[in-house]
Amino acid sequence: MGYVTSLFARKMVAAAGDGIDASTLLAVVGIDPDGPWAPKAMIPAAAYYDMLERIARQIDATDLPVRVGATMRLDEYGALGLAFKAATTLGASYARVERYARLWTSVVEYELRPDPRGTIFILHRPGERRLGMRLSNEATLASAISIARQVSPVPVAPLEVLIRHPAPASIKAHEDWFGCPVRFGSDLDAILFSRETLAQPNILGDVGISSFLVSHLDKELSEIADEAPLVTDTKDAIAQALSEGAPKMADIARGLGLSARSFHRRLSEHGMSFQTLTEETRRELAEGLLCDEGHSLAEIAFLTGFAEQSSFTRAFKRWVGMTPASYRKGRGRL
């Protein structure tokens, strides 16, 4: 099952305006309407498409993807957004998207392909081309132009935009936004840029900062290659909460922008339970802290969410088959 960031769903609902029941739509896809906007919280792509189709039944969604694309801001994309800004040229910025988009979605891949007229930035999204997917593709292409205009010192307008599905009744909003012909019914979902446009230096391009951010993104990418983003984010949230005691599932779900029910279901889809992840996080954190002689056993017990050192000792022995003191000694720390 593919996933997309919950940021996209929140943006779509916000742009749809008063003609929809925003809270209900978000809750249906497992997002807590009153929770924080947590871009790393992922939702199933199929549920996202369902939500877009619900919106389209309630309002005229012809220009909704364009309006959503126009609201996207690089600051909302975390390290990937910063890396896009710091790249030296617009072409280098799009190369970052091509490589690191997996941090935001597991259902879309991007490709930069040479063309006699310049370079084509292609969106690849497999699956049934249902209405929800079509609206999502249009919004993604609109977003790609929005973020380009945020880094370029000159106006950015592609040579043309290609969209595979048939055109809506009016494409005026699309052509006004992109500033070029928009050709529906094409063979690709893509944006064609001139060589000059992609060679344009970015406003905040910086080689040193760019290298640092790329290293960070490489690390993130290697981590999600083995673990689902939701699992990684859950373990991070648990680790941060442990000093206050064993965290509650509802609190962690809320912090990730999900309802408790959706959070439980999503973890189950990955073969995980909240209790299992809590135990894993405690064990991994304890093992790491025991390698640092600067922490006493009592401090480690506290940092891993135990009220008493004796409880921590019993749990650790259950996890690894030896006491914390023996583990530390075996690691050569005492």
Rank of each mutant, 00 (worst) to 15 (best):
T62K: 06
I224Y: 01
Q150T: 00
I145F: 05
E111L: 14
H295E: 00
E279C: 06
A92D: 15
G118V: 08
A144S: 15
M249D: 04
K40M: 09
E279G: 03
G245H: 02
I55C: 08
V151L: 01
T234L: 06
V66Y: 01
D75A: 14
P33W: 11
D189V: 04
L198A: 02
S6P: 01
P229N: 02
G118Y: 10
G127D: 08
M72D: 01
R102L: 10
P33F: 11
I252K: 04
F121R: 14
D32F: 06
A95L: 11
I20M: 08
Y100W: 12
A169T: 07
V29H: 08
L204E: 14
A61I: 02
F184W: 12
R254D: 05
D176I: 07
V107R: 12
R134D: 09
G294H: 13
A9K: 03
L135C: 02
L221D: 11
I122F: 07
S93M: 03
G330M: 07
I147E: 02
S259P: 01
A241P: 02
R282M: 10
P158H: 12
L192Y: 05
E128W: 06
G305H: 11
N202F: 08
V151Q: 05
L213P: 00
A239L: 13
D63H: 03
G118R: 08
E196C: 03
D236G: 00
W177A: 08
A9C: 08
L159T: 13
G305M: 14
K248Q: 15
Y100N: 02
Y77N: 08
P33M: 13
E53V: 01
R10T: 07
F84Y: 14
R254L: 09
P168Q: 09
G91H: 04
H124T: 04
A307H: 14
A87Q: 10
